[in-house]
Computed example of a mutant assay.
Amino acid sequence: MCCTPSLGKELLRVSDAESLATRFKAVADPNRLRILSIISSSPDAETCVCDLSEPLGLGQPTVSHHLKILVDAGLLNREKRGVWAYYSLVPGPLDSLAATLVCSS
């Protein structure tokens, strides 16, 4: 049985395809997937940038680069509190990505 992505019954518009491609590119990196996992599993559903370097084994500039890509793709919110930035998941976009990968029967 052939499995095709479930994108709905309508043809995917150019703007929607570009948005999906940007988001898929953003999650197509193991470190960014780990960042999303760390944030989504945190008790407060948010994480300070200062708490990401150690579990990722990456320097702060590299972590900031990955966070910027995830924010620019619309997957993370960034809230500045004093000298620290806190990140949380934007509700919906990851579900939308997952829905495009669901096999239709």
Score class of each variant (00 low, 15 high):
M1N: 12
C2P: 14
C2D: 15
C3I: 14
P5M: 12
S6K: 13
L7H: 13
L7I: 14
G8Y: 14
L11K: 11
L11E: 15
L12S: 07
L12M: 15
L12T: 11
R13I: 02
R13S: 14
R13V: 04
V14G: 03
S15H: 09
E18G: 01
S19Y: 00
S19G: 00
S19D: 04
L20T: 03
L20K: 00
A21Y: 04
A21N: 02
T22D: 08
R23M: 12
R23L: 03
R23T: 00
F24I: 13
F24Y: 15
F24K: 09
K25D: 13
K25Y: 09
K25R: 09
V27Q: 08
A28M: 14
D29N: 15
D29W: 01
D29E: 15
D29P: 02
P30D: 11
R32H: 01
R32L: 03
R32I: 01
R32G: 01
R32M: 00
L33W: 02
I35E: 00
I35T: 04
S37D: 09
S37F: 03
I38P: 00
I39T: 01
S41R: 11
A45C: 01
A45K: 05
A45D: 05
E46I: 04
T47M: 14
T47G: 01
T47H: 03
C50Q: 11
D51I: 03
L52A: 09
L52W: 07
L52I: 13
L52T: 05
S53Q: 13
E54K: 08
P55T: 07
P55R: 03
G57R: 05
L58W: 12
L58C: 10
G59H: 10
G59L: 13
G59F: 11
Q60H: 09
T62I: 09
T62S: 13
V63G: 07
V63I: 11
H65A: 10
L67W: 01
L67N: 04
L67F: 03
L70H: 06
L70D: 06
D72C: 06
A73S: 09
G74L: 08
G74W: 02
L75F: 10
L76T: 05
L76F: 03
L76P: 03
N77G: 00
K80F: 02
W84H: 11
A85I: 03
A85M: 07
A85P: 02
A85G: 07
Y86L: 12
S88N: 03
S88E: 01
L89N: 06
L89C: 06
L89E: 12
V90G: 00
V90I: 10
P91L: 07
P91M: 06
P91E: 14
G92I: 06
G92H: 03
P93H: 04
P93Q: 05
D95H: 04
D95M: 04
S96C: 04
A98M: 09
A98G: 02
A99M: 02
A99F: 02
L101S: 13
L101R: 11
V102H: 07
S104I: 14
S105L: 14
